[in-house]
Write a protein that binds this DNA or RNA. Structure first.
Lengths: 230, 230
DNA sequence: CGAGCAATATGATGGCCGTCATAGACGAAC
DNA sequence: GTTCGTCTATGACGGCCATCATATTGCTCG
């Protein structure tokens, strides 16, 4: 009974993502049926870079940070996945390890699906393939955009872009640390803190420990800022 | 007669790429049949960013530079495609414009395939999908790697990495200008020239106008340098 | 509650590298 | 041959920002 309820939950989770809109309940049921859940507490590692990929991961509840580490201990965050968002679109197709690691930054519940099950499903639904390609396209464009920004934008501007992006996704109250923002903008914690001090002086934001509140959401819109894809 | 010969050429071109190995001659023939060719002279624009994507492009002969432009006139090169390499893997699936432009840097001949024809084909051959996913995965990883390098590596090191990468792909004689190298490493022409002067002093390279010759190919191997994906 | 750790905050320093400037050399086009 | 654009080359300057250092505050956990 409780089991049926959980299945329904999973189906409702799957419906809006990846172009499953046109898919029947019965078909979604099929895929939900061979999935299982796993819980991670805040700060736990979900998978690490270099590991073989055996499962397709979708966030059911919570928030996950997908990052990549540099050889000098630097780290950049490249995806913040919330409810309904997949963590690894490429892995299930190749099974190969990639340079990604995923870490929960809240208590998180993940839906796992074996590669084969996910693939069998996608191959029967070309629209899903199309959607995945589209997402990967955005990921590539966004990464290249970030490279350009590393060249031609200074830290302050990159941080505003990050704030703007996160605002679009999470609203005006952003529960992240300066370290998180730094990893998203490709800079250091110190520079981030200095920039935030500026933003505060200008009345753009206010902040508490572990969160930043954007005071004038319209401000950044008017600057012609694009958003990253996270 | 000449027509048949050209078709055979195209089939031979298609065979080694994208996982077409297991595909029969007849099937390749099918796809080669509805393709056509187009020639571009050196420096010509093949497609520009923001354009709708109607065709799938494969380089038959020559060399193509795929780049993205920044708002301040900066430009980074993200793919150097030679014979048999595709220019736009994502476009055909979505049809949407992306932030990419392609320019021939030699006299080039391109094989074009209408989106629908390419897609119909890939959907019937899951292995092709798998291969495309794999390539896109590399592209994403490589782009993220470059972002990290922008943070933690200096210009000289990035340029060595670029030289190393190009050497793997094109051999010791690299017919590119300093501007080309700069666009690949994410820096300016001046800084590239200065770095090259250093490399020359150290006996790593010698150079003529429009080309660089790597003298000690083993040198960079021993440095533990990874290569970019271009 | 105290210990310990993470997050915030800010100053000082130094160097990488982007920018601007100038100049010569080579090649292409007419 | 002449002109012009591109490529190569190198110097001078200055500013952004990473790094190091130190201090304070707030949260968590035994």
């Amino acid at each position: 009974m409780d089991n049926i309820k959980r299945l329904d939950q999973r189906i409702e989770l799957l419906r809006p993502i990846l172009g499953f809109e046109g898919v029947t309940f019965q078909q979604l049921r099929e895929i939900a049926d061979c999935s299982f859940e796993k819980s991670y507490s805040k700060g736990e590692l979900i998978f690490d870079q270099g590991e073989k990929c055996e499962f397709f991961y979708i966030v059911m509840k919570g928030l996950v940070k997908v990052s990549i580490y540099g050889s000098s201990g630097n780290k950049i965050t490249y995806l913040l996945a919330g409810t309904g968002e997949p963590l690894n679109l490429v892995g299930p197709f190749t099974g190969n390890p990639r340079y990604l690691s995923a870490e929960s930054i809240e208590n998180t519940s993940i839906l796992l699906l074996r590669n084969e099950d996910f693939l069998a499903y996608t191959y029967r639904h070309p629209v899903v393939i199309k959607n995945i390609m589209s997402i990967l396209g955005y990921a590539i464009d966004s990464a290249n955009d970030k490279i350009l920004d590393m060249i031609e934008k200074r830290v302050e501007q990159r941080l505003i872009k990050v704030l703007h992006t996160l605002q679009k996704k999470f609203g005006q109250r952003l529960k992240f640390t300066s370290r998180d923002f730094a990893e998203l903008a490709g800079t250091t914690t110190e520079s981030t803190l200095r920039a935030m001090a500026q933003f505060r002086k200008r009345g753009m934001i206010k902040s508490n420990r572990g969160e930043i509140i954007i005071l004038d959401p319209g401000f950044m819109e008017n600057q012609g800022f694009e958003v990253y894809w996270v």
